[in-house]
């Protein structure tokens, strides 16, 4: 068979590759990975830009037909929001008062650093992103990653010189000490599917309802207290189990991340 490599070289290659898999030396591999990420980062940025522009144009064309229908819906929404605005003004005043007694917002309590998402895990077996700042920008392992002011999306799990690998909260490997805001019940949130999280360790006798907000509890010290994780989308209390089955919908779509913040340290 001409198309098959010679047995000797084939076996040699096999041994080297198997060795690589099992040795998995981060100190040797880290600079190699950093090099490839550096080379690909500008190209990937161009590709990303092109894909986004194409998608936006396509969505704009699609949306033209639905605009009039949407208009009516939006007018209704405006009325609804006007009513809510009045209510929120009151809550805002109350909130300001409480905040002065309690904690300050995350961006005031911590030093945060803006980074760009330049890569995503595309083999679909885990949930990672790559951000464009690393060791040289003082990024360290376990630093929490947020979007907007306080929506938690993950934590740094590997740091290269110029890049960092982030484990997203929807990964089964991610375990976050969490708190149901309304009932102050603590539990553990972990990823199960693309955009569904599972909250474990919440006892059956505690009242939990859909749409309640889940935030970080701050236990363990990795994630600051009060970062938004998501809202409860489903609650089940199987009779023969100790804990409730609580599904949480993340506050943000993890596929649409472009810029994220790294929470560095307490000010």
């Amino acid at each position: 068979m001409n198309g098959v490599p010679k047995t000797k070289s084939f076996l040699l290659a096999l041994v080297i590759i198997i060795g690589l898999i099992f040795l998995n030396l981060p100190s040797v591999l880290s600079p190699i990975k950093n090099f490839f990420y550096s080379v690909s980062s500008p190209i990937q940025g161009t590709f990303d830009q092109f894909v986004k522009q194409t998608k936006n144009s396509w969505e704009f064309l699609k949306s033209l037909r639905e605009i009039s229908k949407e208009n009516i819906e939006l007018e209704e929404k405006i009325k609804e929001l006007m009513a809510q605005k009045v209510e929120l003004k009151e809550i805002e005043k109350e909130n300001e008062l409480l905040r002065s007694y309690l904690d300050l917002p995350v961006y005031q309590r911590y030093q945060i650093d803006l980074t760009n998402v330049i890569g995503r895990d595309f083999q679909g077996l885990e949930k990672y992103i790559l951000i464009d700042k690393g060791r040289l920008a003082d990024i360290e392992k376990n630093m929490p990653i947020i979007v907007f002011e306080n929506i938690l999306i993950g934590k740094v799990i590997e740091v290269f010189d110029d890049f960092s690998k982030v484990l997203l909260i929807n990964s089964p490997n991610s375990k976050i000490p969490a708190l149901i805001q309304k009932s102050r019940t603590e539990g553990l949130v972990q990823g199960i599917k693309t955009n569904i999280l599972f909250m474990d360790l919440v006892s059956r006798d505690i009242k939990v309802e859909e749409d309640w907000i889940v935030v970080t509890s701050g236990i363990g010290g990795v994630f600051p207290r009060g970062l938004l994780i998501g809202k409860i989308s489903q609650v089940e209390s199987p009779e023969n189990e100790m804990f409730q089955k609580i599904l949480v919908e993340p506050a943000i779509d993890m596929d649409k991340l472009e810029r994220v913040f790294v929470i560095k340290k307490q000010k």
């Binding site: 898999i21 099992f22 083999q123 077996l125």
Partner: peptide
């Protein structure tokens, strides 16, 4: 090699071996 570098989860060599 590149699939492993950019997939973030696989130890380096996994995809090479699988493709082989």
């Amino acid at each position: 090699f590149l699939l492993d570098v950019y997939s973030f989860n696989n130890p380096l060599g996994t995809s090479i071996l699988s493709l082989l």
